[in-house]
């Protein structure tokens, strides 16, 4: 479904040339959950944004291939890319508060993909949006639909973001550190929700995180990135229990251990 080959991203700005993503390769099938871990600056978010078609700065050079369902996302016309964005590939972000438009009602934003990509009328869209909000386990979809983002809690906002991303039933959901800004308990709930979405609808999820343990609870496979390079990849369990690279070991060692519970 998704194939990333030799992805390179080069930025030429005033400070000179930097290459935040170097020769990244990976593949995803329908229904896969793939994790990308790394520290900030490792190129993981940059790769995700490239797949979502959100890198369009003019001081940037992109090379390699991103093939999604036979379409080359890196060099297709913007018109073709826009047809895929928000319809077949959706994305959720780290900060649900700032990622939502502060002066539009949540319902309006949840429906946005339908307004852009379908010919549904107002009533249909509303019905779909309410269902999407209910699907992300929000208690009172009607109330959330009519709220403004600042009136919701952090966890509710991220659920609303997920509802907005899932309303068009995309094949791929890119989640860029979706739980980092949330409390630990809410984090776990959101991860469970993503699991359920994957299980029930078969949506593939590309999960970007700096937290290897979180990736381990959600993903089947993982890619470890450092300084723009893929340093290790494989089945999650294996990488976690038997890391080959020093860097990966370091990431695992950095996970705070809970002294009262034994790790599996």
């Amino acid at each position: 479904m998704l194939k990333v080959e030799d992805l390179n991203i080069k930025i030429n700005d005033r400070r000179g040339n930097t290459i935040p993503v170097k020769d990244v390769d990976f593949e995803m099938d329908r229904g896969d959950i793939l994790g990308i871990v790394g520290e900030s600056g490792s190129g993981k978010s940059m790769s995700a944004l490239a797949i979502a078609g959100l890198l369009s700065r003019h001081d940037m050079e992109k090379s390699g291939h991103i093939i999604f369902e036979g379409v080359s996302l890196l060099n297709c016309p913007r018109k073709v890319l826009r047809k895929i964005q928000g319809y077949e590939i959706s994305m959720i972000f780290q900060e649900p508060l700032t990622s939502l438009n502060p002066i539009r009602r949540v319902g309006w934003q949840v429906e946005e993909s339908l307004r852009i990509h379908t010919t549904m009328d107002k009533a249909e869209r509303r019905e779909r949006a309410l269902k999407a909000l209910a699907d992300v386990e929000l208690d009172d979809p009607e109330a959330v639909y009519n709220s403004f983002p600042h009136e919701l809690s952090g966890g509710m906002r991220q659920r609303a973001m997920i509802a907005a991303a899932m309303i068009s039933e995309p094949r791929l959901l890119i989640a860029d550190e979706p739980t980092t800004a949330l409390d630990v308990t809410i984090q776990a709930q959101i991860v469970e929700l993503l699991k359920k979405i994957n299980r029930e609808r078969g949506t593939a999820i590309l999960f970007i995180s700096h937290d290897l343990s979180l990736v381990n609870t959600l993903c089947e496979r993982v890619i470890v990135m450092k300084d723009g390079l893929v340093v290790e990849s494989g089945i999650c369990e294996e990488v976690f229990n038997n890391p080959k690279e020093e860097y990966t070991k370091g990431l695992i060692a950095a996970i705070p251990k809970n002294p009262f519970s034994e790790r599996k």
Binding site: Q85, M91, S113
Partner: peptide, 24 residues
Amino acid sequence: DYVRTAYSRGNRTKSVFYKHVLFN
């Protein structure tokens, strides 16, 4: 950030501007 979100949903530059940025 919300502008990036708007692009991620497949909005054209013009609609990002008139539906999201301008009123803010």
